[in-house]
């Protein structure tokens, strides 16, 4: 079983961090192989920032591929850029606070989560990535949710003040993801 995911959005939305949290959590699950590949270059400035995460029970071939199983888009340009590359039957996770375009493809599953609005409601616009991480893990169950939270908690280690907001963000995300699945 191999899942490959692309996370895309504006620089500053924490898309790299989202990808890294997921990938590092997968590393902590010793039964999985995982790769994280950041897209770097001129496009990181002002344009879209994106990264690829592959989680697999087997040896991983390509850390980046032309088509993907899952796609998380945090802004409009990313939707336009990456939607054509989402596989038939793929899963699309949308930050519906920002992305208003209706998705025309019918061969994929769309999960909408207004993570920017939810983050502001929690009092910190910055936690939108952890919210989306929760949505993704809640919906896909690609990794054990406890494992993922432990990793996030470990990474935030020194920033105790942020811990509570992030915890709430992750849990709200998980809940939304699980409900969408049900």
């Amino acid at each position: 079983m191999e899942t490959n995911l692309c996370v895309a959005g504006f620089g500053g939305q924490g898309v790299m961090t989202l990808g890294k949290f997921l990938a590092e959590a997968a590393c902590d699950d010793s039964s999985k192989n995982v790769t994280f590949f950041p897209s770097y270059g001129a496009e990181q400035r002002g344009g879209t920032a994106n990264c690829y995460v592959v989680i697999s029970d087997e040896e991983i071939g390509a850390p980046i591929s032309t088509t993907m199983d899952d796609l998380i888009v945090m802004n409009e340009p990313s939707l336009a850029k990456f939607l054509p590359r989402l596989k038939k039957g793929g899963r699309l996770f949308i930050n519906s606070s920002i992305v208003k375009t209706e998705v025309s493809r019918e061969d994929i599953t769309v999960v909408k989560a207004p993570v920017t609005d939810m983050a502001f409601a929690l009092g910190s616009g910055k936690v939108l990535n952890v919210l989306m991480l929760g949505v993704y893990v809640g919906y896909t169950a690609v990794l054990d949710e406890g494992l993922v939270w432990n990793l996030v908690e470990h990474k935030l280690g020194k920033k105790v003040a942020l811990l509570e907001t992030n915890r709430a963000a992750f849990e709200q995300g998980l809940k939304l993801g699980k409900e969408a699945r049900a």
């Binding site: 590393c27 192989n33 995982v34 790769t35 994280f36 590949f37 770097y40 850390p63």
Partner: peptide, 9 residues
Amino acid sequence: GVIGTMMES
């Protein structure tokens, strides 16, 4: 550049 920039366990 892939080996250099990708993260892996």
